[in-house]
Design a protein around this nucleic acid. Structure first.
Lengths: 108, 108
DNA sequence: GTGACATTTCTATAAACATCGAAACGAGGA
DNA sequence: TCCTCGTTTCGATGTTTATAGAAATGTCAC
């Protein structure tokens, strides 16, 4: 991952609704979630949600797929993985960021 | 780390100059870097840099310390560690983001 | 084709952010 | 005290982002 890509991914997540949205997609897992269901869950108007969904897609963090009349969104774990990798490589410099990273909490 | 903190940290890094700035501070390590030297290295006007430095500080990603007439900035590795941890816990959900994270490139 | 539904695009508006020169501030040194 | 140096704050301007109702698009069932 290069810097511009990282910046757009970081920017995509640096917003209340979009972070919640992405977390929701992560929780939804491989099944994904329809745009309407997401808007409903998050309590955000459809048009606003569509805007954020597009931002997330543009940053490569979400992918969409038409399913009948709905459009299913899924988190792109590869992109998130790349982002975390970028941060650890470029912004930690062996300073221990990789030493104690996660608490092994399998929440999904 | 909670969501609002993560959002402000993500937002602080989601900007060309600030990402470069933070990477520079990481490279500088424990010695840190004076504001002027940073502005010089990055080719950003002092006043602009000061703005970005403040954003980074406000997000907890950098700390400052007066040293004679200069002000030394240092990256806050703990904050970055917390951010990476947050992303892995909340936005990966055991989907393999922690499985193959870094390429063991000790760049510093 | 018509109607119902899901989602996006359009449009306008308000708010936040980025930029940078000029002026102000603060810390030493003479 | 006066001067200089390093840094931040001020102020003004242009750009980007967030918001959400209304209209348009696309999909399916009949």
């Amino acid at each position: 991952m290069d810097s511009p890509t990282a910046i757009s991914a970081l920017g995509a997540l640096a917003q209340e609704h979009r972070l919640a949205l992405f977390r929701l997609l992560v929780q939804a897992g491989a099944d994904g979630m329809a745009a309407g269901a997401i808007a409903d869950t998050l309590g955000v108007p459809n048009s606003s949600l569509s805007f954020h969904l597009a931002q997330l897609s543009r940053a490569g963090l979400a992918r969409q797929e038409r399913r009948h009349r709905s459009i299913i969104y899924r988190a792109d774990y590869g992109a998130m993985n790349a982002l975390v990798g970028y941060l650890m490589e470029n912004c930690c410099a062996g300073a221990g960021c990789a030493a104690a990273p996660v608490e092994e909490r399998k929440s999904a």
